[in-house]
Design a protein around this nucleic acid. Structure first.
Lengths: 335, 335
DNA sequence: CTGAAAGCGCTTACAG
DNA sequence: CTGAAAGCGCTTACAG
């Protein structure tokens, strides 16, 4: 990589003159300026952002946002909410937002970012149960906030809804409407934090109302439409299919309803409540547990930036955001 | 802001020792290490990322991605495709991805990013017709690539599908199926680049098949479901409603179909083709002009990184990606 | 109109 | 085990 020194030498001027010419500042002769620019192009010179930044702005306020790899699996609406929630606050506080996700190659992108010194704090959405990374961050006293309850054994700041309770309440409302055969479909392995919490809220609601927990009423897949169809097939195959379902994602719920239609059935045969509300759920008339993702994202960013500004080794903080059940027409009393 | 010098002074050690202590390196006595860490906390010290980066990695490979403000208007699936397309290539080439959008406060975030030296190149998706920003970037010879045909008067690198042609082909296929009353609904003002191209492809197809262009068959709104419903209301209000529609976005199309249902009609009464394919369009059975957004995104990133690596003032390049019409059951011959 | 020098905040050999 | 010094690549007063 050519440096400004190389350019100056090549152009036969001082480093200062080269800098001035390259930035269109100072009063240089057109000739000098031209010589420098030409030399820069010849050497394929690109200025070093770090050095430039060090000497000009003298600081770089960037937070890193680590999300799951974007795709259809990762519910698009939720993704957009995360981005806008974090982005809004970042922008307000004059922070840049670096976006990244772990790839499967191993190694921790998050730790690399920290190492490179490019980010001053990290925000994690739906992280893998990556206890090791979090432990390392703790050791370094590096600021980070999870947009989810932390995994077992990790002591850190986080912002989330109470997924256990949300799931519990939704299940109870189904029970109160007269449903006793209630299914649960998870968009990911139960040992994902979110899935695990929602599953246990569901289970607790059943047990506390003297309804036996039945493994046949639980389906585990991914979060897409296809997976919803498969789940519905599974449920309908039971001797006594459930009369109501908790769907782990919007697309899952849509797949289920599509499959229901294909069987000549509709929401009167099977009530559906989905986790995560979205324009899609609204359009489909699916009852939803509204989780204000953009608020979670915004508050996490706010908390992170607060912690960056204050490096005193303070106790982790956590914020629990309210969720609420929105009843639409696919949530109907049991026949 | 406290610097490492302050910390060293406060701890009564040399700057070098402070650095070593803070990074857990070298062989220092536990006592020294503790003194330094304590001093750092007392002074609320946070290391300067720029200086650290300058001395360690010595360069910062970051590209900035400027998108419209995320929200329901900005079709979520497209957004995720952009992110994954750019992210994939960035990651492969060891570049970080900075995400941002213009806010309404005026001033150009893009230019700020360039100024701060934090990004080495810029990628624009669906930019406003911001000719001034692009001109400034040209003057600075700063690398950038548009994921769309450039606006009038801007000479730069870009990657996109041929929206005029895609729209033309879709319209022609409707005409060939026997439709003559064909509507067009735009998710944004026609002077948006994309909308404008699609509108003119639509119009050209009509004219070249001797079908009169009728303003009543054109609706302009936003890209959400609600807007789709309104558009459909508008079309149904016509004396002779269209028998086929080009919808500018998936959500728009869904809104239209919902509205159609509310009127007791279905796809046999009104064929719908939507721009942008997605799992949603697939699930709804909506015919779609599949635009490989992730490919556009990936190729843009690749082109940008190539241009960053080679600052020689080279001619702008452009890449046109193929789109294709995917026929599903809401695209039916005219009755 | 241009050059020599100081300095941005940090890290890392190198002496001691 | 610790300190003094050089250097990362740049910019900006300050002399001339």
């Amino acid at each position: 990589m050519a440096t400004i020194k190389d350019v100056a030498r090549e152009a036969g001027v001082s480093v200062a003159a080269a800098s001035l010419a390259l930035n269109g500042k100072g009063s240089l002769s057109d000739e000098t300026r031209a010589k420098v620019i030409e030399a820069a192009e010849r050497l394929n010179y690109t200025p070093n952002a770090l050095a430039k930044g060090l000497v000009t702005s003298n600081k770089i306020n960037t937070i890193g946002l680590i999300i799951p790899k974007p795709g259809t699996e990762f519910l698009p609406f939720v993704g957009m909410d995360i981005l806008s929630g974090v982005g809004e606050v970042a922008s307000e506080k004059k922070y840049n937002m670096l976006l990244d996700w772990e790839d499967s190659l191993g190694g921790s992108k998050a730790l690399d970012l920290v190492q490179s010194g490019i980010v001053r704090g990290l925000l994690f959405f739906l992280p893998l149960n990556d206890v090791k990374t979090f432990r390392t961050l703790n050791d370094l006293n590096f600021p980070y906030v999870l947009m989810s309850r932390p995994p077992e054994g990790v002591y850190c700041s986080w912002v989330d809804v109470d997924n256990v309770d949300a799931s519990y309440q939704a299940t109870v409302s189904l029970i109160k409407s007269g449903h006793t055969r209630i299914g649960f479909s998870s968009p990911g392995p139960i040992d994902f934090l979110v899935s695990s919490d929602r599953h246990s809220g569901y289970r607790q609601a059943l047990l506390s109302h003297n309804i036996a927990y039945d493994e046949n009423y639980v389906s585990i897949g991914s979060g897409d439409i296809e997976s919803g169809k498969k789940a519905m097939e599974h449920f309908l195959r039971q001797k006594e299919p459930p009369t109501a379902l908790l769907a782990g994602s919007n697309l899952l719920a849509i797949g289920m309803i599509e499959s229901l239609k294909e069987h000549g059935l509709d929401h009167r045969d099977m009530a559906v409540i989905t986790f995560d509300d979205s324009p899609l759920a609204e359009s489909y008339g699916i009852s939803a547990i509204h989780i204000p993702t953009n608020v979670i994202a915004g508050e996490s960013a706010r908390l992170l930036i607060k912690r960056i500004a204050n490096t005193r080794r303070t106790e982790p903080e956590s914020i629990v955001i309210d969720s609420k059940l929105i009843v639409r027409n696919t949530f109907v009393p049991s026949k």
